[in-house]
Amino acid sequence: MSELKQELKEKIIEQLNLEDVSVDEIANNDPLFGEGLGLDSIDALELIVMLDKDYGIKLADPKEGRKIFESIDTMAAYIAANRSN
């Protein structure tokens, strides 16, 4: 699980072009949106593509993303439970 979390942090930084953020700066329970990392609704769509491409998880409704992308913890838990690759 901690490997997956590390991987997610790296991917988020790369996919969302967060040049000024390092992996160590993202705590597992930090909120990704709003106050925490400051991601927005376009980032949420980018993360939905990442779920699909890298873990074979398809979300039909962007609203589903809100809970899943709350933090690295919630994301990792959802992926671990639903991944197909």
């Binding site: 996919q15 376009i42 769509l45 980018e46 593509v49 699909d52 491409k53």
Partner: peptide
């Protein structure tokens, strides 16, 4: 037409 991301389109 798979795995496209919105930023480029926007």
């Amino acid at each position: 037409e798979q795995f496209l991301t919105p930023t480029r389109f926007i």
